[in-house]
Simulated assay, not measured.
Amino acid sequence: MEEFNNLIRHKIDNTLPETYLDWFKNDLRCTLFLAHLINHLLVHEAYKGKKELIEAVSDFLRFNIYMFNHECSKNLSKYSVLYNRVGDWRTVQVLYVKSIYLKNRTKKYDWIDPKNDEMIDWIYDYLSREGHEHIILDKIFIPENTQEKYELILASLDVLSNVEDPSVGTKNKKGFSLRSYVLSSMKKAWDGQKSYEAKNKVDEWKVKVYKKNHAKLKALIAFSDFTDNQMINNSIEQMYDQLIKEDINDQ
């Protein structure tokens, strides 16, 4: 009984009550931010998908809260909303991080469409490429789908400072926060990419070939060694020359 009481006392004194985990237990974005604060302690691990990461971070905080308290401040960026907190050593730091994170996380990202697979993949690659390298938990968290990749992108923006810095910006214009500069640069790059694609996109029409002509088209392709598109477009050009051009010349 004495040993049992000692174990209970140890649990009370050294573990984080589960009620302090509820704010992130179903929120991958919050969990990613917390994992980033202790990423050097997770460097040898790999978590595939939301479920694995949330369970790992929850267990770490419950049983290693003293390590979190000691390490988390090393990875906290400069944020515009800060304040001091006092209280129970087990809970004070995780409550501080919760408040700081929720008050300072990224808000202006409406242009990012979580259901646009092409956009999410492009942004993920943009933030991962050499010279940018803003994606957090690289090779530690492996997203399983577009939604998880989207939340990883947001969490990666969340860890960036939202405090204006006179050294951040373009050569001719500085004074942005790192977060706002990355977001602005990323949006300009995406808009430029789509504008370029739109200008260079070839208009395409779909033409239905009647079933009775399928065999004829295949024979013509085999005879000419053209593709089906080349065959149809060459036929159009020839008919245009014979009918339209000749009529114009006659007139």
Rank of each mutant, 00 (worst) to 15 (best):
Q93K: 08
L152C: 02
L16A: 07
N6L: 06
V209R: 08
K11F: 09
E148L: 01
L127P: 00
S180W: 03
N229M: 08
S73P: 01
L32G: 01
M1E: 13
I153Y: 03
S224H: 14
K211T: 15
V43A: 11
K194Y: 07
S177P: 05
H10A: 13
L217C: 14
I65K: 00
E237A: 15
E164F: 07
L137Y: 06
I12F: 09
F33S: 01
K171M: 13
S235W: 11
Y181I: 06
N69W: 00
I236T: 09
T106E: 08
V81Y: 15
F60K: 07
G169D: 09
S177G: 07
E197V: 11
S128E: 08
V202Y: 08
L34W: 02
A189R: 02
D250P: 05
V209I: 15
N213A: 13
P143K: 04
E144I: 05
D241G: 04
E55R: 10
H44M: 12
I142Y: 04
L61W: 00
T31E: 01
E52A: 11
F68W: 04
F24Q: 00
R29G: 00
I248G: 06
I54C: 06
I221H: 02
P114W: 08
N14T: 15
I12Y: 11
W122V: 01
M231R: 09
Y20G: 02
K51H: 10
S184G: 09
K211Y: 14
S224D: 13
S180E: 15
D165S: 12
K51W: 03
Y210V: 12
V57A: 00
D191G: 04
W205R: 10
V97L: 07
L7I: 10
W89G: 03
N234P: 01
W122I: 03
P114N: 13
S167G: 06
F4S: 05
K173A: 13
R85I: 15
L137E: 07
F33D: 03
E130D: 12
K108G: 07
S177F: 04
S77V: 09
N213W: 09
H70P: 02
I142W: 00
D191I: 10
Q238E: 13
L127F: 06
H214W: 11
Y196F: 09
S58W: 00
D59R: 12
F141D: 01
R29W: 02
A46W: 05
E3R: 10
V92K: 06
V86Q: 10
E148A: 02
